[in-house]
């Protein structure tokens, strides 16, 4: 979503993005003329007249479970966004009984918070795992 019109989105997709992504952008490119939606999410910069790089994860109940906002010159890390979605999906499927430690990726160890784990995380999780 940006303040550009959906007509300009079409031009950008057809003339540039479709040269980077086969078949063009698969998801809807949203228009937020005037930045009203961006203002509601706290990412619209009214001085510059554009949105910052805000990225919101919204769960199936419509609840915001995470966000990241960067000023324009620095791009996002999409792999990290996907990792967070996978972690949130795992936690939701466990009905909140499981949690993903720092550095978790699919296939890696999850934690089951409870009285037995208090003070014992050091036994089951190593700092090096945060960087793997």
């Amino acid at each position: 979503m940006s303040v550009d019109s959906h007509f300009v989105h079409k031009m950008w997709n057809d003339h540039e993005l479709s040269k980077m992504v086969k078949g063009g952008v698969p998801f809807p490119m949203l228009s937020d003329g005037g930045g009203k939606v961006g203002a509601a999410y706290g990412v619209y910069d009214e001085n510059a007249g554009v949105e910052n790089r805000g990225r919101f994860l919204i769960d199936p109940d419509g609840v915001v479970v995470g966000y990241e906002v960067l000023t324009p010159p620095v791009g996002r890390n999409v792999a990290e966004t996907l990792r967070q979605i996978q972690a949130f999906q795992l936690v939701r499927a466990s009905k909140g009984t499981q949690a993903t430690p720092s550095g978790w990726k699919p296939g890696k160890k999850v934690l089951t918070p409870g009285p037995d784990l208090v003070g014992k995380v050091w036994e089951v999780w190593k700092v090096s795992e945060a960087f793997e």
């Binding site: 940006s2 300009v8 950008w12 910052n52 790089r53 419509g62 324009p72 996002r76």
Partner: peptide, 21 residues
């Protein structure tokens, strides 16, 4: 947006079309 209830949604804002990042 509410048509997507029941699904996970990634909502991304960016400064503008034809920008570089």
């Amino acid at each position: 947006l509410s048509d997507y209830l029941g699904k996970w949604v990634v909502l991304c804002f960016y400064p503008g079309d034809f920008t570089f990042v």
